[in-house]
Design a protein around this nucleic acid. Structure first.
Lengths: 146, 146
DNA sequence: AGTTTTAGGTTGCTTATGCAATTAAACTAA
DNA sequence: TTAGTTTAATTGCATAAGCAACCTAAAACT
């Protein structure tokens, strides 16, 4: 019984990640509505690049908790969309430094606005103090498992 | 400033779902270690079927917050693995009722043990009362957006 | 009954994921 | 300097996801 409750109530909601799936989908929908045709996964890379350009693919992998092949292919698609470019590092020719294009920088404002809207929609009726605790727990779980 | 902190601290950890990604990966790793070769997504369908057989694909879609095509293909793969079977409903020939095979029922014990282990690993150092609040928040976010 | 609408599933297309194996550059050590 | 190891990135393979379009069976309307 305890075991079953444990699954049903404590584990399953986390495992399935329904909340974060719902957030991703809503973000993507909001972006589309504002005519920015990127996926939420692409958004998550751009998010870090808007903060700091010239990151390596390995750094992006660590930041977003994806493996290197995933980043490699995400960058491929972002390059196709002309939003970023790979610049081979002169100092260490194994690494690519990822920079935003003019277009990549330009869409930041729109994207952040839609992200902000998504937050507002998501956090309706959510207690802000408890939210902090929740984030802390998610961070602990992540640290426990990564 | 408030806006940026909002992203960095409140939103981003939710959006990326790093905790749930980490849990899924660990579950899959644990399952593999116990020689059960299913994915965490397949696990999430089986989880409901272990509780109640004869669900329709639409019901599974609602329960797991996936769309119909996703369920259709997950069932395809579970059928290939001989873990479930589709049974066309005599009463309503549009619907398939999904049942476990003997093998599908057999692996329940192992799978639940590995899920239990994954929980234990995930929730190390997590305050149980705050965990309840966190789940409640995730549920609210989900309800806000679905 | 006959037509329209709704509901359950499947297929096509594109994107994203993880793991394993590979290439090529850089570092370490003999 | 060369042999062996580590590191960054890519490629191959299989699974999974969402959206849109489709098909067929059931239900609802007239």
């Amino acid at each position: 019984m305890t075991s079953d409750n444990l699954f049903a109530e404590e584990f399953f909601s986390f495992l399935t990640g329904k909340a974060s799936t719902a957030m991703s989908r809503r973000l993507q929908r909001n972006l589309k509505e504002s005519c920015v045709t990127i996926t939420s996964e692409q958004w998550s890379l751009l998010y870090y690049l808007w903060n700091e350009e010239g990151l390596t693919q390995q750094e992006l992998a660590n930041l977003t908790f994806r493996d290197k092949p995933s980043i490699s292919r995400l960058i491929n698609n972002l390059e196709k969309l002309k939003l970023v470019i790979r610049v081979n590092d002169k100092g260490d020719r194994r690494t690519n430094l990822i920079y935003l294009t003019k277009e990549g920088r330009k869409i930041k404002t729109d994207c952040m606005a839609q992200a902000s809207r998504t937050i507002t929609e998501a956090l309706d009726n959510v207690d802000r103090d408890k939210l902090k605790d929740a984030q802390h727990i998610l961070e602990t779980v992540y640290q426990n498992l990564r």
